[in-house]
Design a protein around this nucleic acid. Sequence first.
DNA 1: GTATAACTAATGGTCCGACCATTATGTCAT
DNA 2: ATGACATAATGGTCGGACCATTAGTTATAC
Lengths: 244, 244
Amino acid sequence: MASSPSTKPNFAPIRTRRAFEVICEQIRAQLAAGTLKAGDKLPAERELAVEFQVSRSALREALRSLEVAGIIRNVKGAKGGAFVQTAEPDRIVQAMQDYVHLGDISLGELTEARLALQDIIVRLACARATEIDLAELELIAERTKRETSVEARYACAVEYYAVLARATKNRIFGIFVDSLSAILHEFVRGPDYETLQQSLIESRFKLVRHLRARNEEAAVAEMRKHLERVHRHVRKNSKAAAKG
Amino acid sequence: MASSPSTKPNFAPIRTRRAFEVICEQIRAQLAAGTLKAGDKLPAERELAVEFQVSRSALREALRSLEVAGIIRNVKGAKGGAFVQTAEPDRIVQAMQDYVHLGDISLGELTEARLALQDIIVRLACARATEIDLAELELIAERTKRETSVEARYACAVEYYAVLARATKNRIFGIFVDSLSAILHEFVRGPDYETLQQSLIESRFKLVRHLRARNEEAAVAEMRKHLERVHRHVRKNSKAAAKG
DNA sequence: GTATAACTAATGGTCCGACCATTATGTCAT
DNA sequence: ATGACATAATGGTCGGACCATTAGTTATAC
């Protein structure tokens, strides 16, 4: 406001670099560079603190961040320490869940994304699913039929989608599907969910039959029909919850 | 191994619940329940520590986790504190990046996923893009032409994809695209990238023209052609890096 | 009166040192 | 050999201290 007009301010936003951030970056860099990889063990906290020339508290905050990010796992006791983890998509799912909770992502966006995503997945799975994949899908569908609790059957459904995604041989789709499943889980409860579940099982068998026949269009159509029923239910519940 | 065969072990994996985890959960729960929402300010650390009956260190580790997860932001000074953040997809992108670094997600998976994703996005954008969206896309393409540095032009490309994703009116796709852009960024460097960039600009204009004409198939075809060129380049670089 | 400077209080960031809980390993008595 | 016990390593927690930054308040200068 009171700046002289002759010189353009052009200030760069200063950024206080906290100790733990720098430590995290260094460790992440070693990870990207490959000097650190899954299974490796970091030195003990007290040792690392000396190495980085920070207090143990600051170092611990860095390790805690990395642990929360799913990069390391802290195990205590003798021969314990911070171990670099193998990749787990859980954190991505968690991040997406946080995002949805914090923001105003609508149910419509979620269901639309899922529909579009499953379209791709079914097409790829139709081309690439092995007999092992198909058999596993059938097995899960069979198991779903035998399960008694609503919760157990839902878990089966999640697994079914996950295995289907795996059949694409592309793990990226698996992550996306897992994330959406986890988020939509919160909306799925309702009075008539149990009867819906029952009627969905047959659809899962049909899908496998289409996949085995490599009938892409029929498979996609079956999945769309399937999901649209689920989403109708979800929307109804959501509306009921908003009213109640 | 040495367990008695008469009794099935069936042990539940015990889980040491650390203080900071419990704190995180409670705060996350309040978030999901809506009692905490974006913009709210948490009590001061020393105060919260008393409330949770833990030491300040333990509480700080919890806050640090939440900050790393993008849920809160710690601002210091008087009237500072932990503020609940508005939703930012950055953390999801970060989580995906970590996953790729840690795991063995191949370049092929990344490019395939991007291709499939952009297919959907182009189709949706074709149906829903407003004139404002289209004008912005053109503006970015124009700006790309004027930029001189490779890095600046790449930033324009990322922005172009982001705006295109926004044109779908579904933020989920935006997140996916941002994530893949960030990850693929690492692979994009190379000797002849500059000449490639130049030749890609025209393709961006063409895509906008197809979108404006609501010609879905032409738009999808243009995007596929565009991406396949980029991915060929990326693969070549990747192979060169592996050899070198 | 107004503007500037100095002071004060609140708050996150860091450090230190201590102790606890858990775990692996070595040791010793039986 | 085997089981109980001691030992050491290591993460988890605690409490207190001080620093740096920031917003508000008060004093001072003009």
